[in-house]
Amino acid sequence: MNKKKITLKAEGLVGGYGGMNILNSIDIEITQGEIVSIIGPNGAGKTTLLKSIFGLIELKKGNIFLGEVEVTNQSPQNMVMSGLSYVPQERNIFPTLTVKENLDMGAYLRENNLKESMESIFSLYPVLNEKRNQAAGELSGGQQQMLAISRGLMSDPQFLLLDEPTAGLSPKLFDETFDSILKIKELGIGILIVEQNAKKSLKISNRGYVLVAGENRLTGTGESLLINKEVANLFLGGQ
């Protein structure tokens, strides 16, 4: 626990699909043990940002540093090895594999201490322990989301990138999901969340970034963004 906290830093990111740029110039940073929300309208480049940090989309410009080490345009595999984990919004579990096999796969690049990780996940989400031998595709939507996050945790990451973890969940499950994200934060993991549910997400965040058209529009603490007029008008329903 005394280890120095590492910071993930992205500077001047430019990238997208083919010739089209979706990210025009984005800077963000997150330190271990922090929750950072990325909010913005549809098409602002939130998901693209996560994907390009994780090496799924090639960056044309910009740098990503993990502590002192540059990790720009690394393969997803190397990113997992360097301590990043990405949980996509959809198709984030292996449906025909059992719950336990899904977790095994999350730990694919690890050799040791799987038991410990699995136990801490089962204490976070006891229901997964009960259903460990069931096919993941048979779980309810909420349970699948828990499994997806757990799969991301099994690689023992320093940073977890979550793409809309509450999409399609009932309001009751929102709160459960955000509760568990707070618990994950306590493990010393930095959590970068992209969320539609901006209000709830900012409430539990240390800091937030507002993206518009692939650029940083606003940055601040979760609190300050919550009471910001512009943010309220743009994304929080104008109250």
């Binding site: 595999q77 997992v80 990405y86 996509p88 198709r91 292996f94 594999l97 096999e101 690049l109 799969r151």
Partner: peptide, 23 residues
């Protein structure tokens, strides 16, 4: 086996397999 499970995982979803770090 780990490789066998990875094979089934990739058959389920190859992009997720890549994200998970599977070779």
């Amino acid at each position: 086996t780990k490789l066998g499970k990875a094979m089934r995982a990739m058959s389920d979803d190859s992009e997720l397999a890549l994200i998970t770090g599977i070779h």
